[in-house]
């Protein structure tokens, strides 16, 4: 598998580390235990197109949001995480 890193270009799978579903959002501090439980443990087992967190540890150390089809491994989009890169968001 090959991933096109927005900072480094097309690179081989071995440079990247997979984390998992990029959809769950970390709940606010006051969201309560149920919400955090859901965030930490409950995952959809997607057969099809999925948004995933990948880390380019063998390259620029950016976290990437990769849109991948879990059935075909086809990657349709790669975006940097909101805070990836050197610039402050909104600066």
């Amino acid at each position: 598998m090959r991933i096109v890193c927005p900072f480094c270009g097309e690179r081989e799978l071995g440079e990247f580390t997979y984390l998992g579903d990029a959809k769950p959002v970390r709940p606010a501090a006051d969201a309560g235990e149920e919400a955090v439980y859901d965030y930490v443990y409950l995952r959809d087992n997607v057969a099809g197109v999925m948004s995933e967190n990948w880390y380019h540890g063998g390259g620029c150390r950016a976290w990437l949001k990769v849109t991948r089809n879990t059935l075909t491994h086809e990657i349709s989009a790669v975006e940097p995480a909101a805070g990836a890169g050197a610039a402050k968001v909104g600066a």
Partner: peptide, 17 residues
């Protein structure tokens, strides 16, 4: 830990400078 902290910085708390 470096990977974890980068995840915290880039994905969880991108608003922090």
């Amino acid at each position: 830990v470096m990977q974890h902290l980068e995840f915290c910085r880039q994905v969880l708390f991108p608003e922090l400078d």
